[in-house]
Design a protein around this nucleic acid. Structure first.
Length: 633
RNA sequence: GCCGAUGUAGCUCAGCAGGUAGAGCAACUGAUUCGUAAUCAGUAGGUCACCGGUUCGAAUCCGGUCGUCGGCUCCA
């Protein structure tokens, strides 16, 4: 029979399998599966006549996914072998960077169990058992899995009543599975189990808590090593570790979980960010406003927060027999500013920005360093504009965000458009119009949009930007949200050219997201080594011995006079010790002063991370500092 | 919130099976006056997260509370 392999016709025996094709064409062993008529398939399967075929290499994303999925099966087999029938298997997909498998088991896994399971997996891999696919009917599948007592599988089968149900076996292990899989267990060359954790069946907390084991697998040992190294690197950059080591911020249970205490060094970085932020907002036509931390229940009733957002709000407090709530958002206050007088179309657009501190209830289990907290300062703004102005405003916001990212060292980002969910307020045609404005704005700016259908909030569509940090991880910062809800609820308006009242369009936006979260991202992005303009200290003066303290003081005050953040280390310690400490604090410049420097009015400059720039006159150093401390635009 | 792990000096951690705590670094004092990632010696520092229980006796065992860490959408 004839088949097409990558467009070329190949002659095969009838009932030939993928293996036969590989043999015939002498394909490398890295081919572990095939696209047969665009459907991922096992090598073991029989190829239909006239099939169009492409190889799947193990290193390709699809190939690695198959590898991980097969490794998940091997892990499930190992767990069954060790824990016997006390375990019920559920699902075990490949995920980004690895795989997991969820088990229903009485006793949660302990760290030592993972080692045992890994050992058993190695045995299974050594046995090189073939993965064999079988297609069976719904009834047979039901019988099979009920005999096995795998009731989770039975539940899944119900969803595939009318489809072809496939099972995969290797050795004595059988799993309901769409496939495809590796030819045999021996193809797994590098894997590692990473952690165990609880996870609800189908992710729903009303369901039973299962026990999940996470692991990963790679085509080669080297790739696995590289991945593990990346995990190490992420740990090294962890903002929680650096936050303590660099004395940036802390949390304490005396204050409460998810509440950040900013130390002087962290506070400095924040001040720099905020100052720059304000300056940029003025430049771009925003007004800076301030609003209180609490507001009366009526306000939150009108805004709808008490209807739609109450579970994230803290309990009210009683003030003179009125209920007040701590604010979870700034919008109602900004709307009040808008409402404080009659607005004309000539006033629009109005852009109110505030570094507004809000408090939201987050479940204790999701709190995470600076990234997920209960009290945080949003770099918030609300834009009130006419429908005609909307697109330009959105473009302005997106451009603003992109410019800010660049300043903070983030060159790459992804944009996501979220459209109307099923439950939403506002006229669908207006949604359409607003969504299109967002889309057109992105198009005009040449920004590729990933669309999340029905992903919008109930009150309007939005564009989110996620930045990519130096390790390639994505972090959501910017959100530009259209709002149909609040203008209605607060009944705000402007007088148009026709002398009639019109409803303004309202856009919420945050660029950096929150100061806390963005700071956390920044710490990890720079691994704590902030650029000179953000660094709490820019220079540390290190006298070689106490004899040169006086000269060190002189240099220090010259630098301070020139507006640089310079500190002195005149402790009675050896130079190398002071250098070590300055390096650990990641101070960008170290200025060493000794005999030679004192007599020639120079400093010996060393930069963070070892580079010795040698001696230079203080004037030269000042020029160098001015240059390197400039804010990147 | 749920599952699991965990909470010992400012930091990193030890403390095996219950007998009232220990190291390194940091801090302080002294000596050393030093040239690019840790000089030496000494001193001080902890109601072992908190509350309760078992016990003659609890950092250690049990229960509760709080915090922290890894997870809890990714469809066989």
């Amino acid at each position: 029979m004839q088949v097409l392999f990558e467009g070329n016709s190949v002659e095969l025996d009838a009932k030939a399998t993928g293996f036969d094709l590989i043999k015939k064409l002498n394909l490398p062993k890295s081919v572990i599966a095939l696209y047969i008529n665009e459907k991922p398939s096992d090598l073991r399967g029989i190829i239909p006549e006239n099939a169009s075929i492409r190889p799947i290499h193990i290193e390709s994303p699809e190939g690695t996914e198959i590898l991980r999925h097969s490794t998940a099966h091997i892990m499930a087999d190992a767990v069954k072998r060790i824990f016997g029938n006390n375990v019920k298997i559920t699902i075990g997909p490949s995920i980004e960077d690895g795989f997991y498998y969820d088990f229903d088991i009485d006793k949660p896994f302990e760290p030592s169990d993972l080692e045992k399971i890994e050992e058993e997996m190695k045995k299974i891999i050594k046995e090189n058992l073939p993965f064999v696919r079988e297609e069976i009917s719904y009834e047979n599948a039901k019988e099979l899995f009920s005999k096995m007592g795998e009731n989770y599988k039975l539940e899944i089968i119900e969803e595939y009543k009318d489809a072809v149900i496939s099972i995969y076996k290797h050795g004595n292990f059988t799993d309901l599975c769409r496939g495809p899989h590796l030819p045999s267990t021996g193809y797994v060359k590098a894997f590692k189990l990473l952690s165990a954790a609880g996870a609800y069946w189908r992710g729903d907390e009303k369901n039973k808590m299962l026990q999940r084991i996470y692991g990963t697998a790679f085509p080669t040992k080297e790739m696995l090593e590289e991945y593990l190294k990346k995990l190490e690197e992420a740990k090294r950059r962890d903002h929680r570790r650096l936050g303590t080591a660099l004395d940036l911020y802390s949390t304490t249970d005396e204050v409460g979980g998810g509440l950040i205490i900013w130390h002087p060094r962290g506070g400095f970085v924040r001040t720099q960010i905020e100052n720059y932020w304000r300056e940029q907002h003025f430049k771009r036509g925003y007004s800076i406003v301030y609003s209180p931390h609490i507001g009366r229940a009526d306000l939150w009733k009108t805004s709808g927060h008490l209807d739609f957002y109450k579970e994230n709000m803290y309990s009210p407090m009683d003030i003179d027999n009125f209920e007040y709530y701590v604010k979870p958002m700034n919008c109602p206050f900004h709307i009040q500013i808008y409402k404080s007088k009659t607005r004309s179309y000539k006033d629009l657009p109005l852009r109110y920005a505030e570094l507004g501190t809000v408090y939201r209830y987050e479940r204790s289990g999701v709190l995470h360093g600076l990234l997920r907290v209960r009290g945080f300062t949003q770099d918030d703004a609300h834009i009130f504009c006419t429908p005609e102005q909307l697109k330009d405003e959105v473009m302005g916001v997106v451009q603003f965000a992109v410019d800010l990212f660049r300043t903070f060292g983030f060159e790459n980002y992804e944009a996501y458009l979220a459209t109307r969910p099923d439950k939403a307020v506002g006229d669908p045609s207006k949604w359409e119009e607003a969504t299109n404005s967002l889309r057109e704005a992105a198009e005009k700016m040449n920004i590729k949009l990933n669309v999340e259908e029905k992903g919008g909030a109930f009150y309007g569509p939005k564009i989110d930007l996620k930045i990519k940090d130096s390790l390639g991880r994505e972090w959501q910062c910017t959100t530009v949200q259209f709002d149909f809800n609040l203008p209605e609820r607060f009944d705000i308006s402007y007088i148009g050219t026709d002398n009639q009242k019109h409803r303004p369009y309202t856009v919420h936006r945050a660029l950096l997201g929150s100061m806390e979260r963005f700071f956390g991202i920044l710490i990890e992005h720079y691994a704590g080594a902030f650029p000179v303009w953000l660094s709490p200290e820019q220079v540390i003066i290190l006298p070689v011995s106490e004899k040169f303290n006086e000269y060190a003081r002189k240099v220090n005050s010259v630098l301070l006079d020139n507006g640089f953040r310079s500190v002195l280390d005149i402790r009675n310690e050896k130079l190398s010790y002071k250098i070590r400490e300055a390096e650990l604090l990641k101070i960008p410049y170290m200025a060493v002063v000794g005999e030679k420097e004192a007599s020639s009015n120079t400093v010996s400059v060393r930069t963070r991370g070892k580079e010795d720039l040698g001696s230079m006159p203080v004037e030269t150093f000042i020029n160098k500092l001015s240059e390197s401390s400039r804010i990147p635009l």
